[in-house]
Write a protein that binds this DNA or RNA. Structure first.
Length: 413
RNA sequence: CGGGGUGUAGUGUAACGGUUAACAUGCCUGUUUUGGGAACAGGUGACUCCGGGUUCGAAUCCCGGCACCCCGACCA
């Protein structure tokens, strides 16, 4: 991608209606556009990051055998009535709409019901179990108060995974697989060492649910961390009984604000009972499928990385989810030989399929550096009159380290 | 949903109830410049959120609405 073709522009100042660091930086750098409170559109750079995050998650989901589908956002009220999530308390969260003939529809705020119903068509025997399915889908929630940029929105992309098992043991086993997969995801996107496996409110079928909480002042949750055991307890279940149960002592716990970047939850047979998702077991008896659900909000995750891995100059993406790996900054300033050198490097890298943004704009060095810092691509290759055809100055965005790399090293050949 | 706050060029800000709504930045022209947001000159860009009202006169005061931000409540 050539910088001169990229339609987004950077801004010196953030719009005054954004207070959160994640939204300020992502808007200033041209990753996202705010449509409404709690509703953001993705611009080319932002979409690249989201796609990268999506791919990291996809790889970890495939690694535990989950199968990808894609369910609709428009929802049939019938199945939600069966689980008592169409009216009453759920009214607070739904965004509902109507067809021309006045039929009511909902915009999905989650997908337990539709996934469960789909499985009625495909699950008959114990031989069909266990398995798991996931998708990346927009969620719509009528948040009373959207806030903190990408942290709490009314429309957002979420990966949700559902598991279908014969019994509790199978569910427990898969649940553990997901825990490991989630830890891998958070490690890979660069927030592994500040993210804690956290005990939180459970449900009817399990004592706890678990959250993955990333320590950050931008978070809305409060957790108590045991750094030795690398686990935490959400404030909502922070009681003497719970601590005793978990073998934790107050003296070893540190209170911290945190962002919930993932949640895993044992559903038991709540949804399968309500919607009649059953299978015939070896013994000939009909039994409800035992389920689990597991979610990661992609936009929130992008926002969390923006919050945590940024500095006063701008964003700092880890290679795993950066929109580009390299940022060639050409300081030709009208010097044809320099420009040719930069362009030649760019074209060679593109030919090799290397992810590179080439700032070929005719602006001054200072502006290019400032923009490059703000956009936060991991490696900046500075091509100026000082560089030669073979040796390039490469600066690591995360720590400012200056590397000297040959053309062959950069082009990979 | 309760409480508080804010709406003025694309963006950030200013303007006592009183000329043609100002400054910075952005954008356009030109000259010069070219390794950390350059300089100069000229230009472009606003029914001051919407609707009423008070007044000789409203960006400014009052009423209603809408939007946005913050705190709280809420968040399978």
């Amino acid at each position: 991608m050539r910088g001169s073709h990229l339609f987004t522009k950077t801004r010196r100042e953030a719009p005054k209606d954004e207070v959160s660091k994640n939204a300020q930086l992502l808007i200033r750098a041209g990753y996202i556009h705010k449509e409404l409170a709690g509703v953001y559109s993705l611009l080319p750079l932002g979409l690249r990051v989201i796609k990268k995050i999506e791919q990291v998650i996809r790889e970890e989901m495939e690694a535990i055998g989950a199968q990808e589908g894609a369910l609709s956002s428009l929802q049939d009220p019938d199945i939600w009535k069966k689980t008592d999530r169409w009216e009453g308390k759920a009214d607070d969260i739904w965004l509902k709409t109507k067809l021309a003939n006045n039929t009511e529809l909902g915009l999905a705020f989650s997908h337990e019901e539709p996934w469960t119903r789909i499985m009625q068509d495909h699950v008959n025997s114990y031989r069909d179990l266990p398995f798991s399915a996931y998708h990346f889908a927009q969620k719509f929630r009528n948040e009373l108060r959207a806030k903190s940029g990408l942290m709490r929105g009314r429309e957002f992309l979420m990966k949700d995974l559902y598991s279908f098992s014969k019994n509790q043991e199978e569910l427990d086993s898969f649940y553990e697989d997901v825990r490991v997969a989630y830890e891998n995801v958070f490690k890979r996107v660069g927030i592994g060492n500040t993210t804690y496996f956290t005990f939180a409110t459970g449900g009817v079928f399990s004592k706890w649910s678990h959250e993955f909480q990333t320590v950050s002042e931008a978070g809305e949750d409060t957790i108590y961390i045991d750094n030795e055991k690398r686990i935490a307890v959400n404030k909502e279940v922070y009681t003497d009984d719970v601590l005793k149960d978990l073998g934790l002592t107050k003296e070893n716990l540190i209170e911290a604000k945190s962002i919930e970047v993932g949640n895993i939850f044992k559903l038991g047979t709540h949804y399968s009972d309500a919607l009649g998702l059953v299978f015939q077991d070896e013994d000939g008896h009909e039994k409800p499928v035992v389920m689990g659900s597991y979610g990661i909000g992609l936009g929130r995750l992008m926002g969390t990385v923006a919050e945590i891995l940024s500095d006063e100059k701008g964003l700092v993406w880890p290679e795993s989810i950066a929109p580009f790996t390299y940022h060639i900054v050409s300081l030709a300033g009208g010097d044809e030989a320099t420009e040719a050198r930069a362009t030649s490097l760019y074209e060679a890298m593109i030919t090799r399929g290397i992810s590179v943004l080439y700032d070929d704009r005719e602006v001054r060095a200072g502006e290019k550096f400032a923009d490059s810092d703000l956009i936060g691509i991991p490696y900046r290759i500075v091509v100026g009159k000082k560089s030669t055809d073979d040796l390039f100055e490469v600066i690591r965005r995360s720590n400012g380290e200056v590397l000297s790399m040959t053309r062959d090293e950069l082009v990979g050949g």
